[in-house]
């Protein structure tokens, strides 16, 4: 059983909804990331989503775009991101790490090379936002034997037929994009999220995570009532941007936001 599946099993036993923070690796500088990952775990993160910086983040709003740009100014590559995961694993063998990004850095590294390097580093899942299952056969063939879960997005526009296809290709969990739009959008409608997560559950027994547009403890709590995982990104990355010239303050500030979300979620 993959580390992600184990984690969801543990959470289910405790009737606890997962909190999954997203940060971009290397933002605002490479030295920030690993200590931040540990701080997030301490503040109640169950799984960590680590953004792989990309020059053309088409599905991201301005907040995460700028995080990518800051990381790329330091030359942070996929190799560097894998090294960060290795370093994190030196003192945390349990918290699953999902890499989230775009296909091209993985494509250029080569699927097999990536899969082996990611397994060695201790990566547990891969979410490439611009890779639908229709184009994913070769990548799946490379990562699945290495126990790396392919995480796929489901969208408000996904038909039942597509939901089925995506759920069939996915493992670990599926990720419901709660808005039509880019990361950091603010117009999430909780009623629609409830309806869609229920619809998704007809297609899979996998846990359903919900993300995009969850920017407060209140929204996190609302989402926790319908999803198995609450995924938060832009609200954290925005705070990191505000503190980018005071990197020492980043970990405690992010921990503070996550602690509040954790408490709100655990009330459910």
């Amino acid at each position: 059983m993959s580390r992600i599946s184990q984690r969801f099993k543990q959470l289910e036993e405790k009737s606890r909804v997962a909190l999954i923070p997203f940060v971009t690796a290397g933002d605002p500088g490479p030295e920030v990331t690993v200590p931040l990952m540990h701080a997030m775990v301490e503040a109640g993160a169950d799984i960590i989503e680590l953004g792989v910086p990309f020059s053309d983040p088409m599905a991201d709003g301005p907040v995460i775009q700028r995080a990518s740009e800051r990381a790329l100014e330091h030359g942070v590559s996929l190799h560097d991101v894998l090294a960060m995961v290795s370093q994190f694993r030196e003192s945390d063998a349990d918290t699953p790490v999902v890499l989230m990004g775009y296909l091209n850095p993985v494509e250029v590294m080569g699927y097999e090379t990536f899969a082996l390097a990611a397994q060695n580093a201790g990566v547990d899942g891969l979410l490439t936002v611009d890779l639908p299952p229709e184009e994913a056969d070769d990548l799946l063939a490379a990562i699945k034997p290495k126990d790396i879960d392919p995480i796929f997005l489901l969208a408000p526009t996904s038909s039942d037929e597509r939901m089925q296809r995506i759920c069939d290709a996915a493992s670990g969990f599926v990720y419901y994009v709660s808005v039509k739009g880019i990361t950091g959008s603010s117009h999430m409608a909780i009623g629609e999220v409830a309806a869609k997560t229920a619809q998704i559950r007809k297609h899979t027994a996998l846990p359903v995570g919900v993300g995009f547009g969850i920017n407060s403890a209140e929204k996190a709590q609302a989402v926790a009532q319908v999803g198995d995982a609450v995924i938060v990104g832009s609200v954290l990355v925005k705070r990191m941007e505000e503190l980018s010239d005071r990197p020492d303050e980043i970990a405690p500030a992010i921990a503070q936001i996550l602690t509040a979300m954790r408490q709100a979620i655990d009330l459910v």
């Binding site: 088409m58 611009d130 639908p132 969208a155 994009v177």
Partner: peptide
């Protein structure tokens, strides 16, 4: 091919 995020697949 078709390499876009899921939201654009149906459109």
């Amino acid at each position: 091919g078709l390499f876009v995020s899921e939201t654009l697949m149906e459109p």
